[in-house]
Computed example of a mutant assay.
Amino acid sequence: MNRIMNWILGSLRCIDWPLLLILALLSGLGMTVMHSAVGDTDWRFADQGRNFLVAFAVMWVVAMIPISRMMKMAIPFYLSGIVLLLGVEFFGITNKGATRWLDVGITVVQPSEMMKLVVPMMLAWYFDKHRAKLRIIDFLAAGVLLLVPFTLIVKQPDLGTALLVFATGFFVIYFAGLSFKLLAPLFVLGVTALVLILYYEQMLCAPGFDWVVLHEYQKHRVCTLLDPSTDPLGKGFHTIQGMIAIGSGGIYGKGYMQGTQTHLDFIPERTTDFIFAVFAEEFGLYGGILLLILYSLLLLRGFFITLKARTQFGRLLAGALTMMFFVYVFVNMGMVMGILPIVGVPLPFMSYGGTALVTLGFACGLLMSISNYEPSKSPVPEN
């Protein structure tokens, strides 16, 4: 009995309680909005409750694993992820024109999801091992480790997940000491490309014009972002209806379960990618501010854990995971509000989905493990 009590108390000590409180508030808010969004399909509401339970269980288990042990698993995880991505390339399951899933016998997996966590773990391990003296060659090698999974995921095609994987990996490289001077040319190149796209919009978006680097549906997403009215009942429908829902919510919102855009089925994908449109219509500007405050607290807690991390591996990984949450929120809200193209990125702890929630739970578990890690101290020999 004493052993069981000691194990329970030990497992509770692994929990970062401020982080858990923030997650509980976000989860409660997410379940509340989901209840309104599902309408008559109550099975999704029950499924989402189950998904949250699984995600929190995964978080608890991961939090109890010392981050030093997770660090040793970085290489096996990375190599396994690459093998699975290659398996998707040659033996993957195709659905709606995309080959992103792999049947491993007992279940069907989406390897690209795990790479959101595995890539920053691998890069954090790499920089931790080379922390004594970082050279340009080390940053180039890290770039190769990042580009291999990124390229394989882009080929599926899954640009949204590929960008998230690239972002988390890039943040590790930047936090490891990549000079901002090396990034300045890339920033200038990006701004120049954006200006040229805006200037030559009509020519670039003309039917039959091939962008080469993007698939046709990805080209349509960018062109629809620039002018949703060109295809209001097709490619621009998602963006237009999302903006209408947000605007109709006003300052105070229409009230819980009173959103007309939601319950008249105008908002597409209202339980997943466009859950924020449902929330904004029913809770208005003040509700949106409250949600942003909760996400800001999540980011602040993540950065606090990053600063107090006792190892280089922990600092780099915690910083990258925290920025991953930021990218999730920024991209999802941006695409719903019409300032970013639609790339299929869920809103953390709000959107429906089991895989995404488990991934987020795993990430939070890693943050808790980093927060509670105490390096072992070698005993000082007596004279």
Rank of each mutant, 00 (worst) to 15 (best):
252 Y>I: 07
70 M>V: 15
183 L>N: 11
216 E>R: 05
318 A>N: 09
142 A>Y: 09
342 I>P: 02
125 W>T: 03
81 G>F: 00
234 G>R: 00
310 R>T: 07
243 M>C: 04
312 Q>E: 12
162 A>N: 13
334 G>C: 09
15 I>W: 13
19 L>P: 01
237 F>L: 10
212 V>L: 12
325 F>D: 03
244 I>Q: 00
159 L>C: 09
215 H>L: 11
353 G>S: 11
185 P>W: 00
66 P>T: 13
322 T>I: 06
208 G>S: 06
38 V>Y: 02
143 G>S: 08
121 M>V: 02
232 P>M: 03
225 L>P: 05
382 E>M: 09
78 Y>E: 02
309 A>L: 04
241 Q>I: 00
310 R>W: 08
146 L>N: 07
269 E>P: 07
204 L>V: 08
54 V>P: 04
61 V>N: 06
42 D>T: 12
131 R>E: 14
344 G>Q: 09
318 A>H: 10
263 H>L: 10
127 F>C: 11
28 G>N: 04
197 I>Y: 10
331 V>D: 01
285 L>V: 06
120 P>T: 11
158 D>Q: 13
351 S>N: 04
292 L>N: 01
382 E>L: 13
71 M>Y: 14
283 F>R: 01
340 L>P: 05
165 V>Y: 11
206 A>W: 04
18 P>C: 02
150 F>A: 08
329 V>C: 07
168 T>S: 15
292 L>D: 01
54 V>Q: 09
246 I>W: 00
276 F>G: 00
299 L>T: 10
